[in-house]
Amino acid sequence: MYKTHRGHESMHVEMILIFLCALVIAQVVLVQWRQRHGRSYNLVTLLQMWVVPLYFTIKLYWWRFLSLWGMFSVTTSYILFRATRKPLSGGTPRLVYKWFLLIYKLSYAFGVVGYLAIMFTMCGLNLFFKIKARDSMDFGIVSLFYGLYYGVMGRDCAEICSDCMASTIGFYSVSGMPTRSLSDNICAVCGQQIIVELDEEGLIENTYQLSCHHVFHEFCIRGWCIVGKKQTCPYCKEKVDLKRMINNPWERTHILYGQILDWLRYLVAWQPVVIGIVQGINYSLGLE
């Protein structure tokens, strides 16, 4: 390989400079796009997240991922269909948040297991259980990939469903005042009546009050903030302190995990595009 590329040092330097410049410009463009037109940015990113892995799985014959991708796509498409219906069924918000909360927890579990398996192998502990390093590393990488990928997909789809359902119910609008007034015993996320009092212990779930004094079903507001990536009150848009909402220190890792998923979205959706642009520039300049 060294003999083949001998004498091409200047060309390699040019290719590296082109890659770095494209990377910086792409970062600036994507940040500006996200800040100015966040809705279109999220939709395009979600579409790429959905399509790009499908291309590689079909090309490389990864049938296991393709089958899981198909089941996830069919179920999520049905959930999206239910969330965008008008009028909205009374049980739809809970169905939506239960599904995406399940996806979120499964992806979190797979991500943790995959990370531990990789560290397990790097420390050589697989030898104590007579497991080949290649097998344990492959298991860790695959588990980590499944967890991170479906975690990103689930959170993006949950955000779309949250906006659609809340705007349909009428207590929330993306860039305006609520179209309906909120009663004291109504949850602004699902639009259903709140039965359990604030200081009362419920059988299924409790009632939670934000710092703005608006009251919600605990399950609904957790789904709205943690799964749906919202950090404002569904009614008045006051800032929500997620650390105050999650008292259990073990659950606070979900916030960090959500931030990791947001960062990973760029790598899966936009990094292949940047690399494709760099290769096109190199090919046009005769550097390939």
Rank of each mutant, 00 (worst) to 15 (best):
Y208K: 12
Y172K: 04
C161I: 04
V189G: 02
I169M: 02
I194M: 08
V189M: 05
A158T: 08
C190T: 06
C161L: 07
Y208T: 11
D199I: 09
L182N: 00
G176D: 07
H213I: 11
M177T: 14
G176A: 10
S173N: 15
A158W: 01
E201F: 09
S183H: 09
V196F: 01
C187L: 08
E218R: 11
C212P: 08
A158D: 05
D184Y: 05
L203A: 15
E218C: 05
I160D: 04
V196I: 15
T179Q: 15
C190V: 06
S183A: 14
S167P: 02
H217T: 06
C187V: 07
E159N: 12
V196N: 06
S175C: 10
E205F: 07
G191V: 04
T207M: 04
N206V: 07
L198T: 12
E201I: 14
Q193C: 09
H213E: 13
Y208H: 14
D199C: 08
H214Q: 08
E218L: 08
C190G: 05
G191D: 03
E159S: 12
T179G: 14
I204M: 13
R180W: 03
E218N: 08
S167L: 02
Q192W: 02
S173Q: 15
V174F: 11
G154H: 03
E200K: 13
M153G: 07
E200H: 12
F219H: 09
M165Q: 07
H214D: 01
S162P: 00
D199R: 14
E200N: 10
L198V: 13
A158K: 06
D184F: 05
E200C: 10
I221R: 03
R155F: 05
H214R: 06
G191S: 06
C220R: 01
S162L: 00
P178S: 05
V215C: 11
A188P: 03
H213A: 13
L182G: 00
S173A: 14
C161V: 04
Q192K: 12
V196M: 05
D156G: 05
N206D: 15
Q209F: 02
L203R: 14
Y172N: 07
Q193L: 11
Q192M: 11
G170F: 07
I194E: 01
G202Q: 09
D184W: 05
S181W: 03
L203D: 15
C187W: 01
Y172A: 01
E197P: 06
I194T: 06
C187M: 08
T179F: 08
L182E: 00
A158Y: 02
S181E: 14
N206S: 13
Q209Y: 03
G176I: 07
H213W: 09
H217W: 04
G170K: 09
A158F: 04
G154M: 04
A188V: 02
S162N: 06
N206M: 07
C164D: 09
L198K: 12
S181C: 10
T168K: 10
S173D: 15
E200Y: 09
I194P: 01
P178D: 03
I195L: 13
Q192A: 12
S211Y: 06
L198A: 10
V196K: 08
A166I: 02
L210R: 03
N185I: 00
H214P: 02
E159R: 13
C161Y: 00
E218S: 11
L198Y: 10
H214G: 01
D184V: 13
E197V: 05
N206Q: 11
C164P: 01
C164R: 15
G170C: 10
